[in-house]
Write a protein that binds this DNA or RNA. Sequence first.
DNA 1: GATGAATGAGTCTTCATTCAT
DNA 2: GATGAATGAAGACTCATTCAT
Lengths: 244, 244, 244, 244
Amino acid sequence: MSQARAESTGDTGAAEAATKKPGTAAGPARPRRRQARGEARIAQLLKAAADVFCTTGYTAASTNAIAREAGVSPGTLYQFFPNKEAIAVELGDRLLTRWQETYGAALQAVRRDQPLDRVLDATLDPLIEFNCANPAFTVLMHGSEIPGMPAKDHDAVHVTMLARVETIIAGYLPDAPPADVTRVATMIFNLVKAGLDVIMAYEGDEREAYIRELKTILYRYLEPMVRDGAHARPDPADAPPNGG
Amino acid sequence: MSQARAESTGDTGAAEAATKKPGTAAGPARPRRRQARGEARIAQLLKAAADVFCTTGYTAASTNAIAREAGVSPGTLYQFFPNKEAIAVELGDRLLTRWQETYGAALQAVRRDQPLDRVLDATLDPLIEFNCANPAFTVLMHGSEIPGMPAKDHDAVHVTMLARVETIIAGYLPDAPPADVTRVATMIFNLVKAGLDVIMAYEGDEREAYIRELKTILYRYLEPMVRDGAHARPDPADAPPNGG
Amino acid sequence: MSQARAESTGDTGAAEAATKKPGTAAGPARPRRRQARGEARIAQLLKAAADVFCTTGYTAASTNAIAREAGVSPGTLYQFFPNKEAIAVELGDRLLTRWQETYGAALQAVRRDQPLDRVLDATLDPLIEFNCANPAFTVLMHGSEIPGMPAKDHDAVHVTMLARVETIIAGYLPDAPPADVTRVATMIFNLVKAGLDVIMAYEGDEREAYIRELKTILYRYLEPMVRDGAHARPDPADAPPNGG
Amino acid sequence: MSQARAESTGDTGAAEAATKKPGTAAGPARPRRRQARGEARIAQLLKAAADVFCTTGYTAASTNAIAREAGVSPGTLYQFFPNKEAIAVELGDRLLTRWQETYGAALQAVRRDQPLDRVLDATLDPLIEFNCANPAFTVLMHGSEIPGMPAKDHDAVHVTMLARVETIIAGYLPDAPPADVTRVATMIFNLVKAGLDVIMAYEGDEREAYIRELKTILYRYLEPMVRDGAHARPDPADAPPNGG
DNA sequence: GATGAATGAGTCTTCATTCAT
DNA sequence: GATGAATGAAGACTCATTCAT
């Protein structure tokens, strides 16, 4: 939890995700069987990309820099990725997969009847842990850097995670109108993203304190809602009387 | 606030440009008189820069594009700003000034003894209004696009606004330890930034709904604190029992 | 007629074609008044482009090579031309203009009632002379190097010259159906292009001999047609009995 | 005709590859046995190369594209051809061979005493037919795309076909000086090439019309010559009176 | 033989910045 | 002050070719 950027460590585990033995399930493209070396290179390149994205952001990241960081020539990079965007997409895919594989079961096990604070712990702790181990996840989760711009392909992490949040929220607010669920989920998601940024900027006790703070915010925001089981008009003790 | 037009001394480390007060500069001070024409040009350039920053983001914005948008030549731009960063710095300065001039008095008038919801309205509504009128403010408020990176010069808006929030919060939590105040202020600030992004992405009723949502979040987060006058251990009804 | 590649010799004459004083006739673009130096650079770049096109062909020509040949940096080239194609387009435009200016009047003076051989001399000699002075004209006249591909922008010379030939032919075959005129013009044009290629490959007496040969071909092809004033069924003495 | 598969000795000047007869090579001759499998591969690659050349032209064709089109890896391609040029050379060789094999006997049978129109039919129809079946032939026949440039290796088709034409013409003009024969043959050849381009660009009736037109041109050009049996001064009825 | 991986120079193009007029 | 010209180092991406398995 303390070692930053450890993703894409050439571990074959992640590599397999894209290996697809030919004949097993013929994808749309030809079964261009990848050699082991190639898989390693891909992992290496994605690790380098994660580093560069974290250091400079997606926009300022250059494919040449990624190749250099990976210790290969630009041409090699383009043997595996058709363009810069595809690198981000694949990186996002793999992180999402790893996220799912690592915490999916645990998250599934979160019961709706548990107290909210437990639910928040069970949901946020893995996310924070994962982001600390894979800082690129935070970067990709931010999606398009230009607000109001149409989502690009490399926003997949953003889109997927938002959808995930919406699903969870919907489970807790079964009686709320869909528009409200979407709105709450959107706020929660962005709130968590922002909180994550702050959390990642600190270490040790300060980080822990910020984590608690984020949980407090979420708890107080959600508690009145789940208490009612809906995004109902909050009672006067919980929300501003004039319009909140 | 107007020292950004540093001489084009080719200094790449333009860091000092934002710290030295006018007149303090020891370097070969060129005549820095600002004529009416110059002021108009600067305003014109900053307006163009704001547009371009909003459209493409700071990183992808090109000085040539800014000059083109302003209808002047690149050379002219560089007669007023030593580099791209200085444009953002000056733009931030001016927005901050305008913000102060427009809403400073009103914000000052917010009395601590008013109910929290009133305070939130009185604080957020101007901010939202101002951001709608000056979308570049949102962009600059985000500061460095790379979380965890050392703040750059054009993060001034970020830094200043954060300080401003901290001051306000400190006023409401007079008995809380400074570290707590900083932490709460940091969370609030980032939360508001994130909320602002979402709000700006919508229009009309949806926007109003998101504004209400943001206020609700802030209200529920802050209400227990201001009720106690400190960042005290929240009582069991308001925070997760396990404190984390 | 003997000195190869002499086009775009920085002569202001050709430069004026694009100079358009602002206010005279507001074009679609802004009146971005070009400085004299810029016009010179354009001429220089077009000359370099002509050289490179002649040496390597359009496809293999690189913008860097053109810039290098012109003795400027790549960036300078792109200050005047948005891309490689535009260079060819502008070069073609200017050559066409120069062609018109140099020989337009003379060609206009060719009377339809003159004997065919005179007409051929009056038409081909200028063309040959012009191509010897501007070898790039030949290159551009060939247009798209991939037969069957849709015409690109830089095929303008090709298209324009073909149209010109068709107009001339139409004048000589007033009673022929349009399809026939087009067909004859197409054949003539391609025949001349091919002949020009050969002619340009030789010098001195050999070149003269090839010029005569080309004229003979054209004469014998056209003579029966203009004799009849139409692309009529040729009489048996002039065409193959079985199908020509 | 099959010596193009030179060892990949990295010699860039592959000029000798097209001139040395098999067995004559003094270099370190590797086993050049061609197995059935190898033949199939080569045919496959050449077919792909023909397609790509026709689609993009020789210059823009990439060896990777050829390999991809052939469904093999780049490495495989280079196991059979030392470089891109060699592919064109071998393709040209094979097309020439096929041309010879398919129509050689028929062309040989063309008797000099037949009427010219019959000769033209007997000569051109096969050529057109062959080009329609093998469009790459047209592409290769054009040889170097840069007029005036020294012929490259892949110009073999160009050179060979020109020689072939010259031989034929020589047979019809036994009394003409060699220089005249060469000149006439050169003109004829280029004229046919140009005509072929046009013909290939059309289909159906239009194509037939263009074929007739090309034959007419050739007939009218050649008829006076063969009538005299020499490239004599054409009589006044056939050529421009001023001779040039 | 065959494959995919690797290369590095090269292509087109952009950009922050400086210069001459 | 203002302009357009100039720069050269990147940036994304390609390609002919070679290498290791």
